[in-house]
Write a protein that binds this DNA or RNA. Structure first.
Lengths: 267, 267
DNA sequence: TCGCATCTGATTGTATATGATCGATTCGTA
DNA sequence: TACGAATCGATCATATACAATCAGATGCGA
């Protein structure tokens, strides 16, 4: 990872969580402690973050720490190979001619790549997903009506008389902010709203969650485990972490990251 | 691989990912490190990318996620200078903070260029218009729900309980297939349907029709002249062709094609 | 086909970034 | 206040990126 990439990643993270520890960054950036310290110090000198013991802090502290999910443009770069592996496994669950729903998010965005050859009816609230599907596939695409929220990149209507009331999907594919014994958790109220709407339009809920999501918590539960039929994660997940889902009768699929996925970063 | 090819590939990659490392490009271009450095430096001198240690960065700020290119090749390059002149005149009718509706079409697509600095509430059924607005402006964008029709590039729902029932526009900007004493004519039933829906959501209908449209006829009348408040055309229109509209109490604006508009073709 | 100009890839020396180590400092806690 | 643990900054060896240079390859026009 380039110095510049680390810097912008740190900046976004700091902006998002208002505070990040060196330890967090260690996992996330895959760089050494020394480098991360240097990065933080550089950014602090430029006045872009505030240096604090153990990490970095936003210059303008946020009132509600940890309540907002990462903006699309940032989380796009995180766990790319895992997301791709999960997306490939998810695509295998789809059969030709089906009608599916794709909730917006970077994990589900990775799914689009594997839908190029399909012949599907797809409903998605994600503008980028719709755009990519439009450009790279021949699937029929339906959008819900509403305003485009730039940060989250989703289309959402504040009203009830939604066009999607007339859509029914065999399967809903969704990512999440966190996934644990309480169910699907999200950090952004807007995303909760969007996801809740989609949940009503299907029975079969498939959650695509890379293993880091299993350790992530937040304040908002979108839905409990009873609503989930399948979970797809990557091989970074510990078996004991998955027990609770299996006990709840959920089908758990562990996708292996292939070499191709690793390389995909470059392509 | 030719230098040109490498350059455009690098630009494309930088555009897509915001940052590319020399190492990435090494694998991808199959050229030597020295060549890649030279390429990056050349592009940096031209200001097309930013040189950073270890690679290249997009000039455009990172926040705007990149949208996949949209197919919209149809009649896009017909009468470009006229359309641009008309679009500029149309943009002058818009005041800040307004809420407007833009019907899909190549003439109205030209309008987007002139909305970059505005602060508007915009409803459009056109996917490309929404995409371009999203990428180039800070306006609030609303989409109607429905399926994306690829050929016409519009979003249209076959149902009545439409999200746009909750939208009201001060002005509707629309193109047309033909425009004459009968009113607005269209050739595609789908477009008629889309346009009809939008007509209900405003009082002030502004038709953008280059002069060739005044001689064009078709089988389907979308609405009569009484519904139209303003017509914008170009100076290719003969005065006598415009009489019938003026007689119907419609404001007619004739936009002059400037040199800049002519040149825009090439850009 | 030849010769010139340009492009390309390898090499070199230098500058910079990185990661590991270690002693110093700070923090939490008793 | 005293202790251990965590964090920090400094230092150094190594790894990586860089510009400059040159020889060979390639393209192009005469």
């Amino acid at each position: 990872m380039l110095e510049r990439e680390r810097h912008s990643l740190i900046l976004k993270l700091v902006e998002e969580r208002s505070i990040v520890s060196v330890g967090d960054l260690l996992d996330l950036l895959g760089a050494s402690e020394a480098t991360i310290r240097r990065d933080i110090n550089t950014l602090a000198e430029r006045g872009e973050v505030k240096r604090i013991r153990g990490g970095a802090e936003a210059v303008r502290p946020r009132h509600q720490p940890h309540l907002v999910g990462m903006p699309f443009s940032l989380s796009q770069d995180i766990s790319v190979p895992q997301k791709r592996a999960i997306a490939r496994a998810a695509a295998e669950l789809i059969t030709a001619g089906e009608s599916i729903i794709i909730n917006g998010g970077t994990t589900t965005f990775a799914l689009v790549e594997f839908l190029a050859e399909h012949d599907l009816d797809i409903l998605t609230n994600s503008f980028p997903i719709a755009a990519k599907l439009l450009a790279t596939s021949r699937n029929r695409i339906t959008l819900p009506g509403g305003t485009i929220f730039r940060e989250q990149n989703i289309v959402l209507s504040p009203f009830d008389n939604d066009t999607i009331e007339n859509f029914w999907g065999n399967k809903l594919f969704t990512g999440c902010y966190g996934l644990n014994r309480f169910g699907i958790m999200e950090a952004d109220p807007l995303i909760v709203q969007a996801q809740t709407k989609l949940l009503k339009r299907t029975e079969d809920v498939i959650v695509m969650a890379d293993s880091s999501k299993l350790r992530q918590k937040s304040a908002m539960i979108v839905t409990g485990l009873e609503r989930i039929s399948t979970i797809i994660t990557d091989d970074g997940a510990k078996p004991e972490e998955l027990e609770v889902f299996k006990a709840a009768g959920i089908k758990v699929i562990v996708a292996s990251v292939t070499e191709d996925d690793e390389l995909q970063k470059l392509a």
